[in-house]
Design a protein around this nucleic acid. Structure first.
Lengths: 240, 240
DNA sequence: CGAGCATCCTTTGTATACAGAGGGCTCAAT
DNA sequence: ATTGAGCCCTCTGTATACAAAGGATGCTCG
């Protein structure tokens, strides 16, 4: 199970650890993945092997390997004799995704509360207390806020110490990142989220597994509500 | 070329409608998968592309595709310059797997209770009531009992109506089937399990999501306890 | 006798050639 | 004009040839 953390925001955040001698299939996989996640290849886009191989600059063999991985990621679907398609994401799919996410994140929070190193989460707490200030610092602050959330998620994953769970969560987060673009930058929501995150952190520090799980449940409920509202609004605006 | 990528196909229960003209990569995938799941290729077994391609009777290209799928299934792991290995399953891994399973099956039971068609589960209830009799009918009865459990799982999946959740559960069940061989055929445990399953079914029929989730939690706790005990015993016997 | 280095060999990664299947297009008939 | 059938063409699935990387082994030097 190859995990690739290419955070797809236009940020230039890779420490650039030399130019990696990536294999062709790896390059093809990453490029297609980023393009799908960023929406450059919108859902429903039909793709052909030869065409994409030529565009990316690899032969069909590594491209097919890349596509196979994307299929198992659920980002594209195979078509019988006509190439492959970028999978659609409907509102119904988002609801379903959140139902899975609920189950996974609650369990992750539970396990983290049981196994955490308190020091790690106390440090995170510090940062989340001052998170609202970040939101006043424009685009860059918001970007750093999202990074902070990533740090929290990773800390919870690490504390939970369950590779299977982390793997399932990574898959969910992959799909979520296709949605997050929609609901990005809602100040009010982000401030509320910071409060919710603080409660989760406190529960984990206290070793209160049930509270951690319930706080996570509440947080995700609010998150889903916000996402659905943002999509509704978007759709309404588009109808104007 | 009609190639259907049955991504999370549990494979076992195909009515075997003659040998369809499967693609070479599909054949290779299924064969390797079955061999790993059945333990013919025990954990730790090192495999080479050429060697396996020759054995199965396909060329390296489709074999590589098959291995790629097995890797994303988590059944094998890639080695840098030395082929690939069937992944190990330690006791610790089993515990972790059950932690994930808990989260997923509880959510599935919850959703099933909310969305089920009562008639389906009333029919299943009938069968589970008479399940203990099956256990008296020897190996064949036990086999039919396991089929019954499969039916229940599928009914819950269908009622839950969440493809993402089902996909995650299929992945977990794939790994579980490697373990189940160990704890197979413990009569006392199977009788107890039938009772637990009945409670889950009743909760789903009643539309009681919380009870369904808790009953599932209890059931999985007992299941894990039983599996770990069986392994302990096995290890002890082997030490003799 | 041990350690380091170079070389060989094994095994993967990639490209390309070929075959078959499926869909689309054209042409004709009603 | 519309619909059906047949043909062609495109695109996938597979095999194989080639290249490069990594490890193991043996040789040499200290």
């Amino acid at each position: 199970m190859t995990v690739v953390y290419t955070q797809t925001d236009s940020g230039v955040r890779e420490p650039v650890t030399a130019s990696e001698p990536l294999t062709a299939s790896e390059r093809a996989y990453r490029q297609l993945r980023v393009e799908i996640l960023d929406g450059d290849l919108p859902p429903g886009t039909g793709l052909l092997e030869v065409e994409q191989a030529a565009r990316i600059g690899v032969s069909r063999t590594p491209l097919r390997a890349a596509v196979a991985r994307l299929i198992s990621d659920g980002l594209v679907a195979g078509r019988s004799g006509r190439g492959f398609v970028v999978t659609e994401i409907s509102i119904e799919r988002i609801r379903e995704l959140y139902e899975l996410r609920q189950a996974l994140e609650e369990q992750a929070a539970r396990l983290a509360a049981l196994r955490r190193d308190p020091a790690v989460f106390r440090a995170l707490r510090e940062q989340f207390v001052s998170a609202p200030e970040l939101l006043l610092q424009g685009e860059d602050g918001i970007h750093r806020y999202y990074d902070l959330i990533d740090d929290l998620e990773r800390a919870i994953d690490t504390a939970g110490a369950n590779p299977y769970l982390v793997g399932a969560l990574d898959a969910v987060r992959t799909h979520l990142s296709r949605i997050r673009r929609l609901a990005r930058g809602n100040q009010a929501r982000l401030r509320a989220a910071a409060t919710e995150h603080l409660l989760i952190i406190d529960a984990i520090i206290a070793g209160d597994a049930n509270l951690a799980a319930h706080a996570t449940h509440v947080h995700l409920h609010q998150s889903l509500t916000s996402v659905l509202a943002a999509i509704d609004e978007e759709t309404a605006n588009r109808a104007d």
